[in-house]
Computed example of a mutant assay.
Amino acid sequence: MKKIIYIVLLVFVFFSAKAAKVDTIQVFSASMKKNIKTCVIVPDSYKKSKIKFPVVYLLHGYSGNYATWVKSFKEVGQQVDKYDFIVIGVDGNYSSWYFNSPIDPTSKYETYIIDELVPFIDKKYKTIASREGRAISGLSMGGQGALFLSFKHQEVFGAAGSMSGGVDFRPFPEKWDIKKRLGTITEFPENWDKNTVVNMLGLLENSNLKLIIDCGVDDFFIDVNRELHTRMLALKINHDYIERPGKHNIEYWENSLKFQMLFFYNYFNDTVKTN
């Protein structure tokens, strides 16, 4: 019995010796006049290292929050340690869609992320404070949000991804509180047109933004992702596009995140070598 206990203890110590650290912090948004919770995951090497780290911002889906990535994704800490970058779990207030609402002045999540959150993280943590050291991705609503923000702010993000993204939400006018952020599609069609990613590809002309987009073949967003992919091909916009078996669920996203993290790791490696 003593021998068995001793072996178990050794195994426990081995896995505990290297573990990403998770912080929950409050970031004040001057634009929305409130504190917003944010999840920060740093690799085990962070505390003792004198180098600066690249950062991946992750955006949750509808009804999620900043803690989605540590509560629902059991391997995210291992991936942070493996690739040695910082991950930021952004809070998008369950249904913000990550843009500045043209009808609700209290919902300014584009301003918050770009002008408030990113500078705060760069000030508080040892980050590579340039587009070469930043990537952004998300799932569902967060996939739309990550592409939206990266397309509009290529000076901030050098790489971006989307997992099962709602990259054209116009076919779903009654879903996910979108009309609370944009008004109804019948009354304010221009709001819907200019804030949906599929209509923003003109921003990628002569762009060097690195992109990875994926969606499950049984996902209700598969058609809009295929349309985005088709338009990008026609415009000769460089991107990785993947379809895999899967639905709009955590099982698909856990697998998808592994591919996206590897994509960002490779991007950071390339930019570090060339800058």
Rank of each mutant, 00 (worst) to 15 (best):
N35I: 04
F12E: 14
F12M: 15
V13A: 14
V56F: 09
A19N: 13
N35D: 13
K21W: 13
G64I: 05
L58M: 14
W69P: 12
D91C: 06
I36L: 11
D44F: 13
F85K: 09
N65F: 09
V55I: 10
G61W: 01
D81A: 05
F85A: 00
F53I: 02
L9D: 14
C39V: 09
D84C: 09
F85L: 06
F73G: 03
D91K: 06
V76S: 05
A30L: 10
I41F: 02
V80Y: 04
Y6G: 08
K82T: 06
D44C: 15
I25P: 04
V27D: 03
V80K: 06
G64E: 01
S31N: 13
I51Q: 13
V90F: 01
V76L: 11
V27R: 04
L58V: 10
Q79V: 05
V11H: 03
Y66H: 14
S72F: 07
F12T: 15
V13R: 06
D44T: 15
V42H: 02
K52N: 15
K21N: 12
W69I: 12
L58S: 02
G92S: 04
H60P: 04
F15K: 11
L58N: 01
D81W: 01
W69R: 11
F12A: 15
V80I: 14
F12C: 15
T38K: 12
V90Q: 05
A67N: 15
G77K: 08
F15H: 09
Y62I: 04
H60T: 03
V40Q: 06
A67Y: 09
V11R: 08
D23W: 08
I86V: 08
I7D: 07
K74N: 14
K34T: 01
F28N: 09
Q26T: 02
A17N: 15
V76T: 08
I41Q: 02
Q79N: 10
A67M: 15
I88V: 13
K18D: 05
V22S: 04
I25M: 07
D91M: 04
Y57G: 04
I41C: 00
N35P: 10
M32W: 08
Q79R: 08
L58H: 00
V87C: 08
C39R: 14
G77M: 05
Y83L: 07
V22R: 02
F85P: 00
T68W: 07
S31V: 12
C39M: 03
F12R: 15
Y57N: 05
D84W: 00
V40W: 01
E75M: 13
Y66Q: 12
I51F: 03
Q26Y: 00
M32A: 00
I36H: 03
G64Y: 01
E75L: 09
S29Y: 07
V22T: 13
K37I: 00
I86W: 08
K21P: 05
F14G: 11
K34C: 02
F73P: 10
V22E: 08
Q26A: 07
V27K: 04
I7N: 13
V90S: 03
A30W: 13
S31W: 01
Y83I: 05
I41Y: 05
Y46C: 12
F15E: 07
L9E: 13
L59E: 12
